[in-house]
Amino acid sequence: MKKATGNKIRLGLFVTGGIFLLMAALYMIGSRRNIFSDTVKVTGDFYNVDGLMVGHNVRFCGIDVGTVDEIEFVNDSSVRVTMLISQDMQKHIRSNAIASIGTDGLMGNKLVSISPRGGTAAYIKDNDALETLRPVETGEMIRTLKVTNDNLAAITDDLRTITEKVNTRNTLWSLLLDTAVAENVKQAIVDIRITGRNSAVVTGDLSRIVNGIREGKGSVGAIISDTTLYGQVKQTIVDIKLAGERTAIITGNLDSLIGSVRKGEGSIGALIMDTSFAHKINKTLDNLEDGSDNFNQNMEALKQSFLLRKYFRKQAKQQPPK
């Protein structure tokens, strides 16, 4: 009888222990899924949930804050994901946060990742809707990778061609292996360094000159810094302007005068433009030339005449010898 009672107690302990372990396991699993804690329900409309399923985790700044409760179609291009977020986390998540579909590690489960966006938006409350990001689709990624691969193939092909040319023609190698070139390059670098140093000196001098000019030192400085000069320059410009205007008037008068002359108006016009008058002048000049020749002959004759010979000799003696 005693043994039977002992057995019953052992059996009771065994059954109780088993049931307790089962309950504890179910509670711990449930608590991880926020089944036994107060939660806030928020939603997000996604274009593509990328294999997300009910029960997957919701993370905020990398911390598990809830689970996916429901996934339903809103229309043909929108899927609504309802998330249960632990009430303890409500005071950390603002309503302007962005939800996106991510992956736990490289090969892990899908999850909803909520990222803060700063600002002073209100904290989330029940039935709030979060903004969402379109997830990066694997297919799209592969298409982009294909383009990158094609580009890489083209680049490597070009590189191969260049390398072949370099290897075949041996020009670059000879250039690289030529010690004289290296020496020249070295010397050029030294020269560049010296030039740079000189440039620095010149720049320093220029800087000093500019500073001197700014301070009003020297002629240029005086010109730039002299405030009265401005008035004088301005007056000069006004004078030049007036002179210009007068010159314009004179030029206009001259233009009209030349016009009149061209038209043969006035004495000068008649003189210039009348061809018969010019002919007469030419004739007169010819006559004058002939007259002067004749006069010279008369004078030579007078010099030879006995009446005036004495006078001319006296004149020649009075003149100093040349």
């Binding site: 065994f14 059954v15 222990g17 088993g18 049931i19 372990l21 089962l22 396991a25």
Partner: peptide, 10 residues
């Protein structure tokens, strides 16, 4: 058997 399995799981 289920109770045995729960204990065995633990």
């Amino acid at each position: 058997l289920p109770i045995l399995v729960v204990i065995a799981d633990a």
